[in-house]
Design a protein around this nucleic acid. Structure first.
Lengths: 152, 152
DNA sequence: CAATATCCGACTTCTTCGGTCCGGGTTTAG
DNA sequence: CTAAACCCGGACCGAAGAAGTCGGATATTG
């Protein structure tokens, strides 16, 4: 259905929270989970993934927790989603760079791959910092198209 | 994982196939399914949805089948996906225009809604006709960003 | 009437997501 | 030193949604 997972949502929320609390040395998974009312153990696993991807630094022991490894401006939403949910592809049949062998006549993906690139580009242009700004950020695209939802 | 369903893929493929065969009055679901090697009954249900959405015209009985209700240039990929998979939202918590009541502190969706708009805009700018063109179409974006996949 | 289609809901199967549990290893406070 | 607080990571399970099947009803043509 073309929506990102809750885990990715949680990850973005957690990074945003960390970005908004730069004065603290580190925040535990439980702290962040309580702040948003999300299951702590689940958030913990997400933060572990982000740590393994190099987006976070972790510190065990008492008063330990997580902290951003870079400036919030240098972390893109794409990196977060990618490290949590893995590489995403719009089309269901694409695996790697090869076309789908199963359905040889699937000539759909060629133009859809360009859509995929566009989405990835938008996600890469958004930083964690942008999520905290309640005013309009630098802008994901040159021109913010005024689109209307078709709530059927 | 931010990918569209197989049903949407099938729908796009079927419309593309219809667009490439304008000389025929109507094609049955089985004809299209056989051409792509996808289950006929499943494709039939998808085409029914597209008919109810007004993208296709159906004709029962012998020599019946489906035909595009408009020019292929006038049907966007957005309409197809929307009518098959329903309205899509990037964020998992958004329902309608209201914010998520469950997690009151979810301030993430505001910027992500803009991403949602961008994606919808790209999908709307792509027509069925564009899928058939093997050359570069009008172009979903001004500049085709040369992005590289991070196959982890 | 008979053959060929669409039409449409119910049903099964399969995968993935969301979430939990538990047994580790580390660091710090007392 | 010991215990508390924290991170680490695999195993596990239920729920939800996707993919696909089945069966019957209706419409159209020859």
């Amino acid at each position: 259905m073309l929506k990102l997972t809750k885990k990715a949502d949680y990850g973005l929320m957690a990074l945003k929270y960390l970005a908004e609390h730069p004065e603290t040395v580190a925040l535990s998974a439980k702290d962040i989970a309580d702040a948003y009312g999300i299951p702590a153990q689940l958030l913990a696993k997400i933060l572990q993934k982000l740590t393994k991807s190099g987006l976070l630094k972790s510190h065990a022991g008492m008063n330990g927790g997580y902290a951003l490894s870079r400036d919030a401006r240098e972390i893109s939403a794409y990196e977060v989603i990618h490290s949590i949910d893995g590489p995403f592809f719009i089309t269901s049949c694409t695996k790697g760079s090869k076309g789908c062998e199963l359905t040889p006549s699937c000539t759909i993906k060629e133009p859809l791959a360009r859509v995929n690139d566009t989405i990835a580009g938008v996600l890469k242009s958004i930083s964690i910092q942008d999520l905290s700004d309640h005013e309009h950020p630098a802008g994901p695209t040159e021109k913010s198209s005024p689109l209307v939802y078709l709530t059927h």
